[in-house]
Design a protein around this nucleic acid. Structure first.
Lengths: 209, 209
DNA sequence: CCGAGTATGTATACCAGGTATGTTCGTGTC
DNA sequence: GACACGAACATACCTGGTATACATACTCGG
């Protein structure tokens, strides 16, 4: 739904043709979210199908212009007036990966964390470098302003990811220590039924139930 | 790609049937990312098509069991051994919305920010409350462990979003002040050509170029 | 001036994720 | 025995993401 509304928002500044929408949207998000060309046209078609937009005449150069309709305007308005739903957030691949790595046979979660941490930090550096090369936001340049905000969003999110990874590692270390002492204390069960956590490289072809 | 690999990872613990995969995946992510039933089956079909999985016999109750293949195992392995790419992150609807709100006619960015801030904070409270109700992670319960990590990821991300929103507002206030003084100083241009930023609720039907 | 290469603008096909809905089948209840 | 219900499975449809085809225009070297 983000592209749909993004295009609508751009069209409220006046009629545009496809390629221009693409470039305007990109100039607002920097190169970070390069929008594939085709998506603009398919999305425009869907918008037209839903009556939020109409194809309306041509450019001086013959480009087909799209114009926002009243219905589109009200749709856009209600988009701005309602928050993005954070109560069921999009799936995050990294979170799923860690959740799986916790007890995957032959996988050490801490390796996964370290690997990712390194990669994410690198991305972070790229972003901060990018930001350092960007002048302080110009008050009358909405496009550049927008792109700075987007960039900062990426920085905030990325930093949070690093902190989360560190947190995970600390927690796992703490847990491993606890499990270690417990095992040393009482020599408890090693391989409970099927879904125990095989530490190390056991990789059995378990097959049960 | 996250569901694909998530299912593969579960199958490495042994053959499973569709519905069981669904429930196991959900128990690792809590109710936060409830996986639609149909997606499991379509994904399994694709996995089978790609040779990462085979349908292999039946349950005692007649459920069709899927088993991971060697190819699937190596695919999974390379997933765990390579980081999630953060150099071109997924589009974030909120970031796009703010980027658009910056100069959308008839929209005050700060309203959008405040609205979202409120909503995001509420989500944050839900998460922390959920976490408070969860006992400290049990060392030998990988599923619960995984779900705690996922929950904490959500908390970290959500918190970062709130901080970003605050940062945006501060920046916009600062910017508005700067623009204000500049205007007071020199009485500069109010509506540059087409893409100026109409402050307040002007909502003109702009149509230009 | 012409033709090759490149940029711009448009269109289409395909894949994956997300959601809703439909179907079958067994079980339990009145 | 009819019915309701839940579990397991299947399908249709929409959106987002990516690659690619294709036409036109522009440019640059011969």
């Amino acid at each position: 739904m983000s592209i749909r509304h993004g295009l609508l928002a751009l069209l409220e500044h006046g009629p545009r043709y496809g390629a221009r929408l693409r470039s305007e949207l990109e100039s607002r998000t920097g190169a970070t979210w390069s929008l594939n060309v085709g998506q603009v046209y398919t999305t425009l078609n869907r918008l037209e199908r839903d009556g939020l937009v109409v194809q309306d005449g041509e450019d001086s150069s013959g480009h087909a212009l799209y114009r926002i309709t009243e219905e589109g305007r009200s749709e856009l308005d209600s988009w701005f007036r309602s928050p993005v739903d954070r109560s069921n957030p999009p799936r995050d691949e990294l979170a799923i990966k860690l959740a799986m790595a916790v007890n995957a046979p032959g996988v050490d979660v801490r390796d996964v964390i370290q690997l990712q941490r390194h990669h994410t930090l690198r991305a972070m550096q790229d972003y901060t470098r990018l930001k350092a090369g960007t002048p302080e936001p110009p008050p009358d340049r909405p496009e550049e302003m927008a792109w700075v905000l987007v960039l900062e969003q990426l920085i905030f999110q990325t930093e949070a990811e690093v902190r989360w990874l560190d947190h995970c590692e600390a927690r796992l270390v703490r847990m491993a220590a606890a499990a270690g002492t417990r095992q040393a204390e009482a020599g408890t069960r090693q391989d409970p039924a099927d879904d125990g956590t095989p530490r190390g490289r056991s990789r059995r072809a378990s097959r049960s139930r």
